[in-house]
Structures are given as structure tokens and as C-alpha cells.
Design a protein around this nucleic acid. Structure first.
Lengths: 338, 338
DNA sequence: GTAAAAGATGTTATCGGTTACATTTACACA
DNA sequence: TGTGTAAATGTAACCGATAACATCTTTTAC
């Protein structure tokens, strides 16, 4: 690999002139410019960007902390981040953190050690580990998808509470009175917000909240399946199951069908996320659409603004959601209205 | 951010001693070691890894060229790559290439410009653009998942032809004679290999190959749906549809159900990949399991071996597949055996 | 007690660019 | 022709670490 010095020698100029030829061509006379360019072409010279980054102190790299890259929703967010980053000349360093605090802390070190300029965190800070990032205030970071109130970073999210309320209202309007909810992990703010929206709707409709209808899952297909197993074995089973994401809803649907029940005649099922598979499920799944790619794009753009000092720290972007009504939800069965 | 020089000053030693304290602590006397460590702690010193990488000429970064990160199968491969890379002290730079030659070429430049050490390509080289990478021989690269014969790089793949043959034989053994295939994009070697396996099995069973039963798709749910639409409108429709991936199979299943047919009583459906959703489909999908995470891990490990000069260029790793028989395939309907 | 060996630490060049400042060249105008 | 100014180019410091080599200190052994 040739260096700027070799180019300079071959062109018979100084390294500064070569550098200028590349950075500010108008500050170099046309004839030397040509001579330098010939030398560059001849040697196949490519500037060592590592050296450039080292000197400039800017890496042009953003780190994305993703709980699980093998998740359909996050995959879309990643796509959005990657494209936005690329279009602004940044690279995206992807980290699969599996929600592990230690791994996340480690990844954040990439910024401390000048290997990256900023961090995008797709998971909310664990409220039980408030000192997670000691240098919080210093670290250029944005939080996306799952955020916590009072975050000290810019955040990009949607109104999960309102969305969950909208879905629950949809189910209530279909006549459902025993509506189960399959939650995400206890520690997730997402879970808390969506649960709150569910409760908002029930209260507004004058319905009581039945704890036996609340099941904990972990956003995987299998946990949805397990939750449905529990719910179907209740003495008085629900007429609708609202799952906090589509994967769990699809897991639940499988169990419901295996139990010989039909959807939505016997039980309605609703999800959250509107992943591609939802429209192809049997029956197609009623869900909340989130603009996943936009989450990623926005997070990257906000982070770059932060890096350029253009964004104030408390910025909070709220993206819109949409209730997508498909065939997995329908009128409550009569037997459920005694 | 403090530098090694500040640490040296504070500890009253030279920069070399500080460097040694971190690199080869045994070459420093215990008492200075302590003094240096105190200075490091006190200043919160973190070595600037950009400087280290610049000087060493090693970036410890691997680039992954992924056609679409928003794909369930690739997401699993990415997970495998990410973990293997992390465990060997490498970072993974993820690039969503959308199969675009220009973008891929650009990404490969990351190596030329010393921003990355090597490349993992998850897509086969476009046979129509043989000069894709001019510096092919020089670029440390491995090709995974989708490879082409005679590749000049190490490759990690599975025997797609044998796998497709096994699936087709399974369908034949169930009595199917009119077996349709939903292919991937024309340009994909995967498509060619799986088609060849399909033809192998048909020939071995003395069945003729009917071109009207071959449909082109693009590995998306919707293309599977469209392909099924075409196949169902044939004067003499197939009794089984073998899709080259699970997404297309799930798209096809949706169409078949919408047409009022049952699976597998009227039509059997088979996929390829064994993504998580397949087991939860209605009915659960018969498919070929690929060790997706292992693809990623192996590709990373081979690439690191290449970087360390431990692997010869022609290495070819073939991973095992497994035929997973679920309920989407069953005996051919009688009417199909005239 | 002293030379040799081993151990500890310091000095400095280096990686490959960028850029402030210095110097040279070119040209215009009196 | 001389001088001032602008344009072109060169020189060298610098970013922050590493490591070869030099130097100084302490053991070890006779």
C-alpha cells in the first residue's frame, strides 16, 4: 500500500501539496494538480483513513447497541440506521448485547477509547442499574425504541401507552370484556407503558383489571405459546389476547389453534409491531404498526446532530403508530357475555 | 480525554514506562507499576485505540456485506458473526448492500483504506460482473451462505443441491408427481443449486421436468404469495410446492388457504432455512434446517485465520443440513395419481 | 571490590496523514 | 526596474501510542 510520501516523491512535490490536491484542489496549480493525480493513479494510492481519523479525532463510526439482531423488528430498525448512517458518511458498528449490562458498558467504551463517535441504544437503561454509564452526561448517545421517562439523552420513541390503549379500545369495541395481555420482560419500560395503556382503556370502559389475565413473556414466539397455554387453562378463559409484540402473538395463535379453537370466532388475538409475517399469518394479525426503519433513521440523524452540537440534550422525538385491523380480531363470542 | 503523556507526567515516569505497565506489566518494577496505575485511575485514562490501530496497521474490524439485514435468516447469520468476532476481539461493521455491486465495491474499499482488516460476503459474486473486485486476490475475504464454484476465496456453505434433492425426494416419497418449485432470483447461485437438486431427484425418480411448474421469486413473503397465485391458476395445478426459502413458503401458504385449499390435504408446501416462524406457521412448515449462526461464526473464524496467514485460499467449509418434517407436507391427494 | 549480567527506565523515531507557518515564485503596477 | 501582493509550494510540528535502542541501576558471582 503506497503512502502520501511516495506519491509526493513520484510527482516531485511535497506531501503538503499532495494533501492539498486531495483536500482543496483549487489551492494547487492546474499543472501540479495533474502531475499529482497521475502519480496517485499510477501508484493506486488510497489515503489511509485510519491515519486521518486518528489525527482528526473523529472516527465517523456510530455504535448501535441492539438487544438481539436476530429479531424481525430490530432488523428493520438496523436497516434504517445503516442507511441513514451511510448517507451521512458514517459507518455503523453493530453490537449484539443480549440485553447484558456488562456488554453494553463495554461497547460504550468504544467511544471512550476513540473508536466510535457516538452510541445508539435500542434498549432502555435498566432502572435497577442507574449508574450504568458513569460518564452518562458526556457520552454522545441517543436512546431509541424503548425509552424511560426523564432520560438524560435525546430519545426517539412512540407513544406506547396510547398505542396499547388504542388496541385495547378496539377489542372492547368488539364486545370483549375478558381481555388478556401477554407482557414483555418485567424490566422493560415498553412493557410498563403498554400495560398502562391497556389499563387506561379498561378503566375508561369501566372494566376491572384481572391479574390472572396478565402473563409475562419475553418477546419470543415460544413465550407467546407458553403464555397462551396458561391463559387457555384458566377456569374462565379470555375472549381476546393482546400480546405486546407480534412474535408472541404468533406463538399464541399456534397454541390456540392446537387447542382446537378458532381465531377470531373463539378468541381474538392482537399483536404489536406489524412485522412482515403478520399479514401472512393465519388469520392475518391485527396489530400496531411502528415505523421501524424510521426509528433507526431518526436515531442516527439525532445522534449526528448531537455530535455536531446541534441538538439539545432533552430532545424527545415521538413517532406515530397506526392500528392495523386484520382478521385475527373479531366480535366477542356470545358465551362471553353472560 | 487524557493521554499517555499526562499519565507519565503525573506518575513521574516516561511514556514508555506507562506503555509497558499496560502491555508487559512484568517488565516494570512493582512500585512504579502501582504509581502508574494510580495515575491512570486518577486521570481516568483510556488508551486511544485509534492511535494504536493506526500505528499497528491492524483495525480489528471486519466488514460484513449483507444483502438485507432485515431478513430473518441473515439476522441469525449476523448474530453468529457478531459473537464470533467479539470473542476474538474484533468488531463487526455491518453493511446493508441490497445486493448492489457499487455499494459492495465501496464497502470493500474500507479494507483498501485501512478502515477494516477483512470482508465477509454473504452474497455470491455476480457472475455477470466477474471483475467485481479488481484486487480480488489481495482482499482478505470469505464468502458465506451463497457461493459460486471456483471461488478464489475461502467459502462457507452447505450442499444446497443435496439439500434440495433430499426435500424433493421427501415429496416424491409421499406420492407427489407434480411438484412445483418457487425459485429465488435468477442470478443467485443458490437458486441454481437448489434447482439442480430438485431436478436430480425428479430424474432419479423417472419424473419429467415441467417448466410450467417453475416460478421465480425473490425470497420475500409477497413473492411467494404471487408465485402461488400463478401456480394455482394452472390448468393442472401442482400437488406440492417447494419454495427455496421459508418466507416464500409462508407467502405461498397464505395464498393456498385464501384459495380455500387445505395444507397438506390438497397441497403440500415445503420451505428452506427453518426460520423460527416456520415451526409456528399453520400448519408448521416442513423445511431444511441450516445452521445459520454457525455460518456466521465459521465465516468469521476462517476470515481471522486468513488474516493470520493460517488458511490457504481455497478452503471450502461445508456445513450440514437437516430435513425437518412437519405438517405442511403430506401424502399426495388421490386425484393427483390418475 | 569489581566486572558482568540482569533489570528498570528513559529517549526518540515512527506510523500517515493535516495544517500552521515559512518561503518561494509570479505577476501587476508605479 | 523595483516593490508589493497574491498564489503556489515547502517545512515541520503534531495527533497518541509503540518499541528499538540507549542508559542507568541493581544483583550476582568470583
Amino acid at each position: 500500500m503506497s503512502t502520501i510520501r511516495e506519491v509526493a516523491d513520484m510527482a516531485g512535490v511535497s506531501v503538503a501539496t499532495v494533501s492539498r490536491t486531495l483536500q482543496q484542489p483549487d489551492r494547487v496549480s492546474p499543472k501540479t494538480r495533474v502531475r499529482v493525480q497521475e502519480a496517485i493513479d499510477h501508484l493506486g494510492y488510497k489515503p489511509n483513513l485510519m491515519a486521518v481519523k486518528f489525527r482528526s479525532g473523529k472516527t465517523q463510526v456510530l455504535v448501535a447497541l441492539v438487544p438481539t439482531v436476530a429479531n424481525v423488528f430490530f432488523a428493520r430498525v438496523i436497516k434504517g440506521m445503516q442507511e441513514a448512517a451511510a448517507s451521512q458518511g458514517y459507518s455503523l458498528l453493530l453490537m449484539n448485547t443480549m440485553g447484558d449490562d456488562d456488554i453494553e458498558r463495554n461497547c460504550a467504551k468504544l467511544v471512550d477509547t476513540s473508536q466510535a463517535d457516538g452510541v445508539i441504544q435500542l434498549r432502555a437503561f435498566n432502572p435497577f442499574a442507574p449508574d450504568q454509564f458513569q460518564s452518562e452526561a458526556l457520552l454522545p448517545m441517543v436512546n431509541a425504541c424503548e425509552i424511560v421517562d426523564g432520560a438524560r439523552f435525546p430519545t426517539v420513541t412512540l407513544d406506547n401507552r396510547a398505542a396499547a390503549k388504542a388496541m385495547t379500545e378496539h377489542l372492547i369495541s368488539l364486545g370483549h370484556r375478558r381481555i388478556a395481555m401477554v407482557k414483555g420482560p418485567q424490566s422493560s419500560p415498553l412493557t410498563r407503558d403498554r400495560l398502562a395503556g391497556y389499563e387506561d382503556a379498561l378503566k375508561a370502559a369501566g372494566l376491572s383489571i384481572d391479574d390472572s389475565l396478565l402473563c409475562a413473556g419475553d418477546f419470543t414466539l415460544s413465550s407467546g405459546y407458553r403464555a397462551a397455554t396458561t391463559l387457555l387453562s384458566l377456569p374462565k378463559r379470555p375472549t381476546a389476547i393482546f400480546c405486546e409484540n407480534d412474535e408472541m402473538a404468533m406463538g399464541a395463535m399456534r397454541k390456540v389453534r392446537e387447542a382446537g379453537l378458532s381465531i377470531p370466532e373463539d378468541i381474538s388475538i392482537a399483536g404489536f409491531d406489524n412485522i412482515a409475517f403478520s399479514a401472512y399469518a393465519e388469520p392475518p394479525l391485527t396489530t400496531i404498526a411502528q415505523p421501524a426503519e424510521e426509528f433507526g433513521e431518526t436515531a442516527v440523524n439525532v445522534l449526528i446532530d448531537v455530535l455536531n452540537g446541534k441538538t439539545k440534550h432533552a430532545l424527545k422525538v415521538i413517532l406515530p403508530f397506526e392500528l392495523i385491523t386484520r382478521q385475527s380480531t373479531g366480535p366477542a363470542p356470545d358465551s362471553a357475555n353472560p
